[in-house]
């Protein structure tokens, strides 16, 4: 596959893993390997001590050579998210932050107002901001305008596994965006990831679909292959949908095999 470029950085993998839902470290490591992921996002709030992130999950990711992308999951205000991003920069020595500002804890939908405010502030401070956003093309545009390095719209709510509920909005986001578009939530299985890439998403972030599958390692592989299939299909040029059949072989010029042999 062709590489994905975010903020000038080349990534071979178009699958970003989420560590949420993994409580089994060996499974997480095995899933990372099978996903061939380069990046795995980790909630700073899940770390024993955000200022010294060694121990538990970060070491597991280090061991399999997967880079940690810190995220601000669990933050409900711009102020919280900015503070958490500062902690992350200090702890991981990275300017990259996956920005999440959640509006309410039942839907876990992004709070648009707080999100833009936090994004603006963090971009000003030199962060590479990857915001988790709704599938609203206007909000995606606003995030791009304040200088986010990518936009990460949801397909459906976090952990819902409902795939892309509004592909029309997503395709508008994709059409207009001049930064990479990463589908950030809602993937339930491999075909959802394939559809996202077919639609034109540049990458997929996937956590629950893998971590909560009965066999997370098999699902990691399936999602990786789904992404590969979707990307190839996107480039291959699909045929248009039509209502009536069209024989794949033209009737014209076919040999008339049912013609009886000439009479003796």
């Amino acid at each position: 596959m062709d590489p994905l470029i975010i903020a000038g950085r080349e990534l071979r993998s178009r699958l970003i893993l989420g560590s949420g839902g993994f409580d089994n470290h060996e499974l997480l490591a095995a899933a990372c390997r099978e996903a061939e992921a380069e990046i795995c996002t980790v909630a700073l709030r899940r770390l024993p001590d955000p200022t010294h992130p060694r121990g538990s999950i970060v070491d597991v990711l280090d061991e399999v050579g997967v880079e940690v992308l810190p995220n601000t999951a669990g933050c409900f205000t711009a102020r919280d998210a900015v503070t958490t991003a500062h902690l992350a920069r200090e702890a991981f020595g990275t300017d990259w932050i996956k920005l999440e500002v959640i509006g309410d804890d039942r839907t876990l939908l992004p709070d648009a107002v707080e999100l833009v405010a936090a994004a603006e502030e963090l971009v000003d401070e030199g962060f590479t901001v990857l915001p988790y956003t709704t599938d609203d093309p206007v909000l995606a545009r606003r995030l791009e305008d304040v200088g986010c390095a990518a936009v990460m719209p949801l397909g459906s709510p976090i952990g819902s596994g409902m795939g892309m509920c509004n592909p029309y909005n997503l395709s508008i986001i994709i059409e207009r965006a001049r930064v990479p578009v990463v589908l950030d939530a809602g993937v339930g299985t491999a075909s959802d990831a394939a559809l996202a890439l077919e639609l034109g998403c540049d990458a997929v972030l996937c956590a629950s679909a893998i971590s909560r599958a009965h066999d997370p390692v098999a699902m990691a592989r399936a999602v990786r292959l789904g992404i590969e299939a979707g990307r190839l299909a996107r480039g291959a040029g699909r045929i248009p949908r039509r209502r009536y059949a069209e024989a794949s072989t033209s009737m014209a010029g076919m040999p008339a095999l049912d013609v009886p042999a000439a009479a003796e």
């Binding site: 770390l47 024993p48 001590d49 538990s56 999950i57």
Partner: peptide
Amino acid sequence: TSEERGFD
């Protein structure tokens, strides 16, 4: 709860 927070 189930939290990975060291010996906290």
